[in-house]
Computed example of a mutant assay.
Amino acid sequence: MTIFCSKKLPKIKSVGDVFKEVRKKNNLTLFQASHLSHIPKKHLISLEKNQFQKLPSAKAHCIAYVRRYAKILKLDEKIITDEFIRQTDLNNYQPIHPHSGLKIRPLNSIILWTKRLAIGALSIVFFSYIGWQINGIMRPPTLIIFTPNEGYVTKQLSATIQGQTDAEISLTINGQKIRVNDKGQFEVEISLSKGVNTITISATKKHGKTSTLTRHVVATPTNNQVSYGSQQPN
């Protein structure tokens, strides 16, 4: 009768263990090995720790790193590369992009995030437009007087009022309504009385917001001119 004795089989070393062991025997630090092989230190660490999923996603990159590292450690490149391919099963492992350090996300997840970003952008545009419309309604209308300037002195008993406001605005000068063109521009001549004349220009929106400006014009007619007093604009 044959008696079989159990025998403990030696543990098969991984590619990473071989790299680490040989590097240390050659008294090389990871920094020195990275400098000699031109392989980033973080990828050498991943190789030695058998964390192959952290290597670049392209198979060519992985194999190139393994061959280059084997070469500077004076190992058989073909044997090491074949063993690396066998141990890692390159066709099935999930890689991490070398630059981003993030796992590649499924296409559905990318589409979902794209939709969310698009909805967020549209929401921002929509609420910005609503805010702009509300601000336009709530703020008083624009009102600019080009002539006359405040304190204007004239020898005539009339003055021309020129200015700019918003379109579709109700404009009055000293209480009398004045026509405004489709660009918000207006021009009207009013009569003056001798001395200081107060001219009040008001622009009112449909919703009641009003802007008012006042000009004081001094009329100093010659003695032969007749003052008819302050008259309403035509």
Rank of each mutant, 00 (worst) to 15 (best):
K7A: 14
K8C: 07
K8F: 02
L9Q: 10
L9H: 04
K11V: 09
K13R: 11
V18L: 14
F19A: 05
E21T: 10
R23T: 09
N26K: 15
N26D: 13
H35K: 15
H38N: 13
K42L: 09
K42Q: 11
I45N: 10
I45M: 14
S46M: 06
E48T: 09
Q51R: 14
K54C: 12
K54P: 03
L55A: 05
K59R: 13
A64Y: 07
Y65N: 07
A70V: 11
I72P: 00
K74I: 04
D76T: 07
K78C: 00
K78D: 14
I85H: 03
R86H: 09
N91G: 05
N92F: 11
Y93V: 14
Y93R: 07
P95S: 14
H97R: 10
P98A: 01
H99W: 13
S100W: 06
L102P: 00
K103D: 15
L107C: 11
T114D: 09
I119D: 03
A121L: 10
S123F: 10
S123K: 03
I124F: 14
V125D: 07
F126I: 14
F127I: 09
W132H: 08
Q133S: 05
I134L: 07
I137Y: 00
R139P: 00
P140V: 05
T142S: 05
N149R: 09
N149M: 12
E150R: 11
L157I: 02
L157T: 03
A159Y: 01
T160F: 06
Q162H: 07
Q162F: 09
D166M: 06
E168Q: 03
T172I: 02
T172A: 02
T172D: 01
N174E: 03
V180F: 01
K183V: 04
V188I: 14
L192S: 02
L192K: 02
G195N: 10
V196K: 05
N197P: 02
N197M: 02
T198I: 11
I199C: 07
K206Y: 00
K206A: 01
H207F: 05
G208K: 08
K209E: 08
T212E: 00
H216V: 13
V217E: 05
V218H: 12
P221R: 06
T222E: 13
N224D: 15
V226I: 15
S227F: 13
G229N: 06
S230Q: 08
S230V: 13
S230A: 07
Q232R: 10
Q232D: 12
